[in-house]
Design a protein around this nucleic acid. Structure first.
Lengths: 220, 220
DNA sequence: GAGTGTTATCTTATGCCGTAAGAAAGTCAA
DNA sequence: TTGACTTTCTTACGGCATAAGATAACACTC
């Protein structure tokens, strides 16, 4: 289902594009065909336009990918509105960020090598910092807590997304069950019981642990 | 400094390669020139060989990258030998893993989209699991703790490595200081004081928090 | 509304990339 | 010596990002 099929366009004839339209189309393409499915050519085709046309809105492909990451993060960062306890706020922030990121799993590998803070998410960061500092955290510690939490959420979401992708080709972790029973009793028991495989459960566990730890280290 | 320059080689003349040699050279190339500097052609040149020769030792480039990740993880995973408290062991594991990963920062972006558990690291995983279970963790929770910790370490190392790379082109986070002072007082104060910028300090903080949290959630 | 600069689009071309196909030369067992 | 097998090289193909420049539509001015 390519976007526009409105006949052939001549040399100077406008298609009415915008940077935002291009980012939207690119995101859709990545969601559908994966990272490797996004080329300047395929994206142009998706928009009914030649590849070189895109360079009028984006300096190069890397900048396009940056835009994609920014787009996903902006959409995934929840709005921290009501006054709340810092614990509740961080919990909600982390949970919502994870869910938002998992909506575009193919973009996540890009996110780890590109800046995560975007102008659009500054308000939420400031709000969270205010909650933390009024909750007793020195500013440096508040930043550490916030950054650690964000890094963890991104890392966890990326790992989760990898499992989905890898499942089609690697067959998951079934090979674990074929190990030497004498040498790896716990790993084998874990594989047989499917222990520790629930992603959401692991995330909740680690999130609780982090928040408990933050509380204990708030000032010390 | 290309590796071998021992004259020109004929068609069937052996260069004496091995998969391990190729991985070593590839790792060196990535460390020196970054991910984009690693092409089958450049790697061949590094080894004094044509690009297609490499396909006798590696099925395709993706497999080469997999091998690279495995190599880095195997070297980075510390050996858990002596009997110890699970807290001490996890702390040592995380610290050593971080340091090992940071030795090859350019490889880290690959690590997030590829499996981290390799046959060579199974012994250490089993050892850590034994410590955790004898320390009072049910098996599922022990796995959650270990996996969360690993995900966090990888994510943090990747974020640290990104800063180094991005610094040459994006100029760091200096733009933060130019924000609206009324709207973002805490962010600006943080930027001015360089608060929360010490990577090692943030890592230590989050690691302590996680371990404290694990302890509290050990059984409940 | 004619003229003119600007902007959006297309066309063509270049130099990379991964890798398919197969030829040639070395090695080794019989 | 023969002949299979392994390792290496040669050539070639299609796809990629993108540089350079032509061309047509638009947005002004007078």
């Amino acid at each position: 289902m390519t976007e526009h099929q409105e006949a052939r366009r001549g040399r100077g004839e406008r298609a009415g594009l915008s940077r935002q339209q291009i980012l939207d189309a690119a995101l859709g393409l990545v969601d559908r065909d994966g990272i490797k499915g996004l080329t300047m050519r395929s994206l142009g085709q998706e928009l009914g336009v030649e590849a070189m046309t895109l360079y009028h809105y984006v300096p190069n492909k890397d900048a396009l990918l940056d835009g994609l990451v920014e787009q996903v993060f902006t959409a995934a960062t929840p709005t921290m509105d009501g006054p709340a306890d810092w614990r509740t706020a961080l919990h909600a922030y982390a949970t919502a960020l994870r869910e938002g990121l998992l909506r575009h799993p193919a973009v996540l590998p890009l996110a780890t090598s590109r800046p995560a803070v975007t102008p659009a998410t500054l308000d939420d960061l400031e709000a969270l910092l205010r909650l933390l500092t009024t909750g007793g955290f020195p500013l440096g510690r508040a930043l550490h807590a916030l950054n650690s939490l964000t890094v963890f959420v991104i890392g966890h979401a990326t790992a989760e997304a990898r499992i989905v992708v890898g499942a089609e080709e690697a067959g998951g972790t079934d090979w674990l069950a074929t190990l030497d029973a004498e040498r790896y009793p716990l790993l084998i028991r874990a594989a047989n019981e499917r222990a520790g495989t629930d992603d959401a459960e692991r995330f909740a566990f680690a999130l609780d642990a982090l928040l408990l730890g933050f509380d204990a280290l708030r000032s010390g």
